[in-house]
Structures are given as structure tokens and as C-alpha cells.
Design a protein around this nucleic acid. Structure first.
Length: 293
DNA sequence: AATCGTTCCTGATAGC
DNA sequence: TGCTATCAGGAACGAT
């Protein structure tokens, strides 16, 4: 599922391909997922002929900076990922296939539900098995008022995000399980289920530990591991145990260093104890009951 | 104000 | 074999 490293992988991939291209058409079959404007014909007429001037990431959100001072926000949620490929329509504008040829081999690339057609003959397609992704087109000056955006905490990789700032963010909550706090997008934005599990295993801290009982040293450890592991995960192009793929449909390589996430029943690579799966804040958490205190 | 449960959705898997 | 029930999971939303 796309968290910070996966979203960053998509953004970097697209930035290499689509800057300064123009959106000439849109296709979708998930009208409900387009939250703004709600009326699709309005959405279509607004976005048509806009140029993609930049693409950035905010937490797990992908932001397309469009001409005429518009932002297109896409949140891929659980199973969405953006793909880039050459579109195939016949001369009447009908699809020969929604899915560009090279992407067809992998079932995870076949759930196309939203497509931006570009003026170079290529498309940006959203493959989203569970149809949870969200799409919003807004004026730049409305952007910061969006509920999806206005409460977002700082980005864990921002160079100004010092340990002091991290500590202050965590301490905004008086208590709570550390895993839940790390995944709270209003505290820090970008970490989800995979990387919270992986960070806490490396920090040797139990996912249910209450933040009120974490020492300064333990918090520092979490901070330092977070700042190292997320860039490494970006370098590996993310985690593809289930559905995530990069824009060319390829799997990421985080698997090579995945230590606990979805490894229940297997042995901890540090101490050999069997890794457990439990519920933390209503979500699954994976951890080593021996190493993580 | 903060926290909890529900909702969105569908492929994969377990159980019968 | 083929059916049904359960599960996964980010984040908004409604209820408490």
C-alpha cells in the first residue's frame, strides 16, 4: 500500500516523464471518487488543456501543479498506483485497451479506473483494485483549506524536521500507542502500516508502548531510524508485497530488507523468535515479542 | 475535544 | 467443486 516511499517513487517517476505536457482528455468509471468538483463534466472542462507544471508530494498525497493556478490532488489510499504508458485509442476515440501493452502482464496494473490523456500520446492511469483513491481539482488558493490538507503534520524527511520538532509533534499527544501515533497523519504525514512496523522493529520498541513511557533516547532512536529507513525505501522504489507498482508497472525492492511486516510465523532475523501479528488501534501490527519491549 | 466504530470496495483465502 | 463468509486497510465521518 502506498506510503511515503511509494508515493515518492510515483512522483519522481512522473516528474521524469510528464512535466510541461498538456492534459487533453479524462476517462473514469469511479465518478464518486472525484470529490471536487463533484460534477464530472465540470471537472473535465476545468482540467482539459491544462499543462502539468510540476508534481510534488505532501504526506501520501500527490499534487499536480497545473496551469491557470490549479492543483490536482490524488490520494492513492490503499491499493491505488499511477501508471504511465502509451494510450491506445482508435481514431474514433474508443479504447483499444485502457491498459497500455507492457503493463498488461501484471494483474495489479489492470484495475484502471481513472485516466489522464496527455498530448504526447501517453496516459497517466490510476490502477486501484479497491477503488478507495480520492481525486480533487482545486484552485491553488483553496488548497490549504481542504480538510485533507489543512491538518497534515510535517513531512518526516523535510530537512528542517529536526529531532526537537519530531519530539514536539509526538508530545502533542499525552498518551497513546506509539504505532498509532506514528501513523497519525496530523502528527507526521507519510507513515502507514508497513513503515511503522519496520521502524519500530529496528528501534526495538513494542508497537503498543505508550508514548508517555518512552524515554528521550527511545524517541531519538525512532527519529533516527525513520530518517534513514524512509530514504532507503525510496531508493528501493518501495514495497510491493501486495499491489504497489511504480509508474512503469514494476515492483519495488523493499522486500529485501522487510523484517516484520506480514512476516508473522517467521523467525526474527535478529533473535530467532517467531514474529507475531496483533491488533494495534484497530490495525494489524507485526513485531518480535522478544526484541521489542 | 478526543476517541471509537463504521464506511467505502473487491480479490484472496478459509471454511463448509 | 462451488458456494459463502471473512479479511485487508487510509482516512473521513458520525456517534458517543
Amino acid at each position: 500500500m502506498p506510503e511515503l516511499p511509494e508515493v515518492e517513487t510515483i512522483v519522481r517517476g512522473l516528474k521524469n516523464k510528464v512535466l510541461n505536457l498538456k492534459i487533453i482528455d479524462v476517462w473514469t468509471d469511479i465518478y464518486k471518487n472525484i470529490k471536487r468538483p463533484k460534477n464530472f463534466s465540470e471537472f473535465l472542462s476545468l482540467i482539459t488543456n491544462k499543462k502539468i507544471e510540476n508534481i510534488t508530494r505532501l504526506g501520501k498525497n500527490i499534487i499536480f501543479h497545473l496551469s491557470d493556478n490549479y492543483f490536482l490532488l490524488i490520494h492513492q489510499k490503499l491499493t491505488g498506483h499511477l501508471l504511465y504508458g502509451q494510450w491506445e485509442k482508435d481514431k474514433d476515440g474508443h479504447f483499444i485497451s485502457k491498459i497500455p501493452g507492457p503493463l498488461r502482464d501484471d494483474p495489479q496494473n489492470r484495475f484502471l479506473h481513472f485516466i489522464l490523456f496527455l498530448d504526447n500520446g501517453f496516459q497517466i492511469g490510476l490502477s486501484d483494485l479497491r477503488k478507495f483513491a480520492k481525486i480533487l481539482l482545486v484552485k491553488k488558493d483553496e488548497f490549504n483549506t481542504l480538510k485533507e490538507i489543512k491538518e497534515l503534520g510535517p513531512d518526516p524527511l523535510d530537512k528542517n524536521f529536526t529531532f526537537e520538532k519530531f519530539k514536539n509533534q509526538i508530545r502533542k499527544k499525552e498518551k497513546g500507542e506509539i504505532k498509532k501515533i506514528l501513523m497519525d497523519q496530523n502528527i507526521i504525514s507519510g507513515i502507514g502500516n508497513i513503515y511503522s512496523d519496520e521502524i519500530l522493529w529496528r528501534a526495538k520498541i513494542h508497537p503498543k508502548r505508550d508514548i508517555s513511557k518512552l524515554s528521550e533516547e527511545e524517541l531519538k532512536k525512532i527519529y533516527q531510524i525513520m530518517r534513514k529507513l524512509l530514504p532507503l525505501a525510496i531508493k528501493l522504489k518501495g514495497e510491493s508485497i501486495s499491489d504497489f507498482r511504480d509508474i512503469s508497472g514494476q515492483k519495488g525492492n523493499f522486500d529485501k530488507i522487510r523484517m516484520v511486516y506480514r512476516r508473522e510465523g517467521q523467525r526474527c532475523s535478529r533473535c530467532g523468535t517467531v514474529i507475531q501479528k496483533i491488533k494495534v488501534g484497530g490495525r494489524t501490527a507485526h513485531f518480535c515479542p522478544n526484541c521489542q519491549k
